[in-house]
């Protein structure tokens, strides 16, 4: 795969990362190496094999539908940079 600086910039933008020109080039080179490794894996014939999303043999981890007390609001709001005592405050996001 060809990881261009433009692609890196686009992914950085989607991830809200600000990369300098040098970092873009460095990251592109590193991602290119990672993609090359993936290309090796891609040579394997995996037809008919169920894709694996988790490495641990764990399935169906479920909990009962029972209400437990929520967190104290003041404690939760205290974790955020800004609040008005009732809601979290963030930079303008709606019209």
């Amino acid at each position: 795969m060809n990881i261009t600086p433009e692609l890196v910039e686009r992914i950085a933008d989607l991830s809200r990362l600000e990369l300098g020109q040098e970092e873009v080039l460095e990251t592109a080179a590193q991602l290119e190496q990672i993609a090359a490794c993936m290309d090796i894996l891609n040579r394997l014939d995996t037809r008919g094999i169920q894709p694996m999303s988790h490495v641990f043999p764990v399935e169906n981890v479920l909990r009962e539908d029972t209400v437990l007390p929520s967190q104290d609001r003041a404690e939760l709001l205290a974790c955020a940079p800004a609040s008005d005592g009732e809601t979290f405050l963030v930079p303008r996001a709606v019209e």
Binding site: D84, E86, T87, F88, L89, V90, R92, A93, E95
Partner: peptide, 15 residues
Amino acid sequence: KLAHDPATGLTRVDC
């Protein structure tokens, strides 16, 4: 739920 607060120019978040 998001609500714009005209007084502060910020957005209030209710989770």
